[in-house]
């Protein structure tokens, strides 16, 4: 049994400690917004936050999380209105949508650490997140828009 803090709630997992966090989140705890893409940490679809840092949940064993606070897409904002989420809708980013939870979590972590990223910084931070529909131009645009919204509203 592993105790986890996910989206502010205490949850327990019965999975063996070497189980990738991804599968615990998705299949055991049914927080399915976190997606499985590659299992190798090279696509970013499974990105979640642990203590505010963007991590690939397929590369983290559930036993390694310890007291770390996990945030998934479901817990990014209480009413799904994080500036990144708002910007994603405003700019109409998603196509098939499968990678977008990971993109959004990656972008939210970037902006939490760097509220005014340059174009190059956005490219660097988002480059590990694959989008096969190639919504990249809109992703980059939405990150900038979210940064602007955060400045205007001074929240999150």
């Amino acid at each position: 049994m592993t105790n986890l803090t996910i989206n502010g709630r205490s949850l327990a997992s019965d999975s063996p400690p070497d189980t990738p966090l991804l599968w615990v989140l998705r299949e055991e705890l049914r927080l399915t917004g976190t997606r499985f893409g590659c299992g190798l940490g090279v696509c970013g679809a499974c990105t979640v936050h642990i203590d505010g840092q963007a991590v690939r949940s397929c590369q983290v064993k559930v036993g390694q999380v310890g007291a770390g606070a996990i945030t998934t897409i479901e817990g990014l904002h209480p009413s799904n209105a994080h500036p990144v989420q708002q910007a994603w809708i405003e700019i109409q980013v998603p196509q098939c949508g499968y990678c977008q939870s990971g993109q959004i979590m990656q972008a939210a972590a970037l902006l939490a650490h760097n509220p005014s990223p340059s174009t190059t910084e956005i490219q660097d931070a988002m480059n590990g997140n694959l989008c096969r529909c190639a919504t990249y131009p809109r992703i980059a645009g939405a990150v900038k828009r979210a940064a602007q919204m955060m400045k205007e509203k001074k929240h999150v």
């Binding site: 998705r26 399915t32 976190t34 479901e74 989420q85 109409q92 998603p94 959004i104």
Partner: peptide, 21 residues
């Protein structure tokens, strides 16, 4: 007009076959 399937794709609630139990 904004695409009707987009909001669910920004908050984890979009359902793919992968999400079936």
């Amino acid at each position: 007009v904004p695409a009707l399937d987009i909001p669910a794709k920004t908050n984890g609630s979009a359902k793919y076959a992968m999400d079936v139990f």
